[in-house]
């Protein structure tokens, strides 16, 4: 239990540090892959639904607090991503490249649409609504790095809690 808690806290902190590093290194205005979304998807696809959903919710709220989206938008959407990928994990083989790419693309589109819809309902300010160009860039970038993120998250999870390979898919 203690080990799981440590795994959860470290994942949260290291994921956030990585996100901060990327934001520090990449010039403002340039799109970057949505690392935290991909990490949530990867964790969910391993069958760690609660873990992925909780991490996604906290990371999402942090992104909202640091960003310009309404507080709660990304929190809910990342929790949804964790819940979705976790629920589907029994029917998916997360080690297949096609699965990873499909998950990444669908989740990015859902994220983009969700932010637009929720911001439209709850946040009437003209800023914080991602454009189609940005969404396209995110889809491309997320698809590009998704296999790497899935692999890293699998290795990281196995380090803490090795589990038998998911053979059904």
């Amino acid at each position: 239990m203690k080990r799981t808690g440590m795994f959860f806290v470290l994942t949260l902190v290291l994921g956030w540090i990585f996100q901060a590093l990327i934001l520090y290194a990449v010039p403002a205005g340039l799109p970057t892959p949505q690392w935290l979304l991909l990490a949530v998807l990867a964790l969910g696809a391993q069958g760690r639904t609660t873990f992925a959903m909780s991490a996604g919710f906290i990371w999402g709220l942090a992104l909202d607090a640091y960003g310009i989206s309404a507080f709660g938008v990304q929190g809910w959407l990342l929790a949804l991503a964790g819940f979705g990928s976790g629920t589907l994990s029994k029917n998916l083989n997360a080690e297949k490249l096609g699965t990873q790419e499909t998950l990444a693309v669908i989740a990015t589109l859902v994220m983009w649409g969700g932010i637009r819809i929720l911001s439209g309902i709850f946040d009437h300010s003209p800023v914080g609504h991602p454009s189609v160009i940005l969404a396209t860039a995110h889809v491309a970038l997320n698809a590009l790095v998704a296999p790497g993120v899935f692999w890293v998250m699998a290795a990281w999870s196995d380090l803490w809690d090795p589990r038998p390979r998911n053979d059904h898919a």
């Binding site: 609660t50 919710f57 709660g72 938008v73 929790a79 629920t87 709850f122």
Partner: peptide, 18 residues
């Protein structure tokens, strides 16, 4: 458990947004 927790998160998010 997962569905319940997701419901809780959804309610919290909704409350935060509302």
């Amino acid at each position: 458990r997962s569905a319940t927790l997701f419901g809780v998160y959804s309610l919290v998010s909704l409350a935060l947004l509302a």
